[in-house]
């Protein structure tokens, strides 16, 4: 009898079912090289077995061969050097101008009222459509190519900069004013550092745009440059060289993304 009552009064214990978890990505560093190796390995295997036609897509080993040839003849540095020079000059000039104009738009009501609609009107134009015009203005040489990259970099930087300034914590500015900090000090010590995260993420976008425009501009009237090399390879149906050229661009993009990552972790080291 007593046993029966104990069994009745003590309810069954069971653990509460776990319902959290999921929806959170884990960093898995080894996966990305594995994916890389598997994709290229399958591609190579397909080419070797004849499943992928030679003309349609050359084997990775052939593209590598073309790349090594490019290094041996020394042409790699000629092409890459010419491209890097255009990229660095165009992107740097566009970025400096873009940050300057972006700050002016953010800080001065008259500039904002005047320039903001202009920026909105010109930003969506594909800059490559203006290349013929740039060739008339700046000549077929370096001028038109750099102008295209500069123009393409300028607008995203302007928008990233004034968006960043608009989002700077107003309480910090009010604090500085309450301590009698001067206008120029507020700009240098609060507004620019506060907008820096947005400006740096603008860099990621503007550098990608710059590389796209670089190749497009080099396809019109350039002797050297990765874009010219790819165009020539294409017209000769040398698909192995074409793939080698594309691989160079991809490596360039990766290197620059890595550099921006480094700059971010240095400049934004105060962030969590």
């Amino acid at each position: 009898m007593s046993d029966a009552t104990v069994a009745l009064t003590a309810p069954a214990e069971k653990p509460v079912r776990f319902r959290g978890g999921g929806f959170r990505t884990r960093p898995l560093g080894i996966i990305s090289p594995i994916v890389f190796v598997v994709v290229i390995g399958l591609w190579e295997l397909g080419s070797q077995s004849g499943l992928i036609g030679k003309l349609i897509l050359p084997a990775p080993s052939e593209a590598l061969q073309a790349l090594l040839e490019l290094i041996e003849t020394g042409n790699l540095w000629k092409h890459l050097g010419a491209s890097l020079q255009r990229l660095i000059v165009g992107w740097t000039a566009g970025t400096i101008l873009g940050i300057g104009v972006g700050l002016a738009i953010a800080l001065f009501s008259y500039v904002r009222a005047g320039a903001q609609p202009l920026v909105s009107a010109i930003f969506p134009i594909p800059k490559i459509a203006l290349l013929p015009l740039f060739i008339i203005w700046f000549g077929i040489g370096e001028g038109s190519k750099i102008a295209t990259i500069l123009f393409g970099t300028f607008f995203p930087t302007v928008i990233a900069t004034y968006g960043g300034v608009d989002n700077v914590d107003r309480t910090l500015i009010r604090m500085a004013q309450s301590f009698g900090v001067s206008w120029s000090s507020i700009v240098r010590k609060i507004i620019i550092p506060g907008a820096m995260p947005a400006i740096l993420s603008g860099f990621r976008i503007s550098i990608a745009i710059a590389i796209v425009l670089l190749v497009a501009a080099e396809m019109i009237g350039a002797e050297f440059g990765v874009g010219a090399y790819i165009l020539l390879a294409g017209s000769l149906v040398a698909t192995d060289q074409l793939i080698a050229g594309v691989a160079i661009l991809s490596a360039l993009g990766l290197t620059i993304a890595w550099l921006i990552g480094k700059a971010e972790s240095y400049l934004l080291r105060w962030r969590t």
């Binding site: 309480t171 910090l172 009010r174 604090m175 500085a176 309450s178 301590f179 009698g180 900090v181 001067s182 000090s185 010590k189 609060i190 550092p193 506060g194 820096m196 105060w270 962030r271």
Partner: peptide
């Protein structure tokens, strides 16, 4: 007195990109 009327804010209003020392320095640099 460098700044006769000085605030202490509810949300602290510290610059996240400056150290403790740098935050105090901000009020003195000008």
């Amino acid at each position: 007195s460098l700044n006769p009327l000085t605030y202490v804010f509810q949300d602290f209003a510290l610059l996240p990109w400056r150290t403790v020392e740098g935050n105090i320095s901000l009020a003195l640099e000008d």
